[in-house]
């Protein structure tokens, strides 16, 4: 997706420039190149050059294939709700809800059961009962294994 790459590349250029400036401003302990800022500055300069290369290479690519109109169409198609992206949005929202809403609300174990049941139903192509059953079973297995074998506390 050439157009997307060019856009992101330009964003990178701005981003790395900002980080570079932050790096230059880091304090000196004797000499700049042995100080905290040295390595970030080197990295950001390299990243700026590489991002520039990326953007230019893709622009050249674009001109050769004379695909600008094509690419704009593709880009807007990217953002329209296709079946695939719907699934991605669902699983992302579900995961975020699991971590930031369900777990504080219900405790990790129950939240896990809920998360598994719902996502298995949405994506697993099995009926509700099997979803719940698998969800509960896996949660129990995980809980036992981590708590008693590995001695790890569950997230809060």
């Amino acid at each position: 997706m050439l157009l997307l790459e060019i856009i992101v590349g330009i964003i990178f250029l701005i981003f790395f420039l900002y980080l570079l400036i932050l790096g230059i401003e880091m304090p000196e302990y004797g000499q700049f190149w042995v100080s905290p800022g040295a390595f970030p500055v080197i990295l950001n300069i390299l990243l700026l050059l590489l991002s520039l290369w990326w953007v230019i290479a893709q622009i050249i690519n674009l001109r050769e294939k004379k695909e600008l109109k094509n690419q704009v169409v593709k880009l807007s198609a990217l953002f329209s709700a296709k079946e695939e992206w719907k699934r991605l949005v669902f699983i992302s929202v579900l995961t975020l809800a699991y971590i930031y809403w369900l777990t504080p609300l219900l405790g990790f174990s129950i939240a896990t059961v809920v998360f598994l049941t719902i996502s298995l139903k949405l994506f697993g192509k099995i009926n509700w009962l099997k979803c719940t059953g698998v969800g509960v079973l896996i949660t129990i297995l995980i809980y036992l294994a981590f708590r008693y074998v590995l001695n790890l506390p569950m997230p809060t």
């Binding site: 174990s109 129950i110 509960v136 079973l137 949660t139 129990i140 809980y143 001695n151």
Partner: peptide, 28 residues
């Protein structure tokens, strides 16, 4: 099957609550 699973789940949660009121140290 479902009933059994729910019972186990309740037991687990209960043990979690019970251990919370025990003495320091409770975990590593």
């Amino acid at each position: 099957w479902l009933a059994g699973a729910l019972v186990i789940l309740v037991l687990i949660c209960w043990s979690g609550v019970a251990s919370a009121s025990a003495e320091w140290p409770q975990r590593s």
